[in-house]
């Protein structure tokens, strides 16, 4: 078969660095949408701890809703399909990309278009929200470090919006 094909990313691979904040494309991740009525139902299938509270993250799993979790991992382990069980595990590894927004002005940058109060958004918390009109998922990885998941088709726009706002 032909040699390994190249990945085509919607944003530059070179980080954008501005005063107090940088924006960069995260390395490829595996992503799964995990759905079930309870965290326990998933724990049985995955054999890992699954956070109960909306907004909580644990071991790369973020609880986004009462029946929805997002698993992000760099590991190459195979995922169970959950076939026949009352759970839904769906591969969404390439649905979004992750932008890393980092620096003392990271929260300030996100708040240029996100209406959440990120001063009161604890490290480790994750949520789906919106930046102007584009849906994103924000995960606070550190005091000055956020992961922003955005669907691929919107990524170029979001990159332009972030870099414009960061330059101001």
């Amino acid at each position: 078969m032909s040699e390994a094909l190249f990945r085509n990313e919607p944003v530059p691979s070179t980080p954008y660095v501005a005063d107090g904040v940088s924006i960069s494309l995260a390395a490829p991740l595996k992503r799964y949408s995990l759905r079930a009525r309870t965290a326990e139902a998933l724990e049985t299938v995955l054999n890992v701890k699954v956070p109960q509270k909306i907004g909580a993250t644990e071991g790369g799993i973020a609880c986004l809703g009462p029946d929805e979790w997002l698993l992000r991992t760099a590991a190459e382990t195979a995922m169970p399909t959950g076939a026949g069980l009352p759970v839904a595990i769906t591969d969404i590894g390439e649905r979004s990309i992750c932008l890393i927004v980092e620096g003392p002005r990271a929260a300030e940058l996100l708040m240029t278009g996100c209406p959440l109060d990120l001063d009161n958004f604890a490290v480790g918390r994750a949520t789906r929200t919106i930046y102007e009109t584009v849906e994103i998922i924000i995960i606070r990885e550190g005091e000055d470090r956020f992961h922003v998941e955005v669907w691929r088709s919107f990524a170029a726009w979001l990159w332009t919006a972030f870099t414009a706002a960061a330059s101001h």
Partner: peptide, 8 residues
């Protein structure tokens, strides 16, 4: 619907 949030 909390469409851009928990989805419910």
């Amino acid at each position: 619907r909390h469409i851009h949030g928990c989805g419910r």
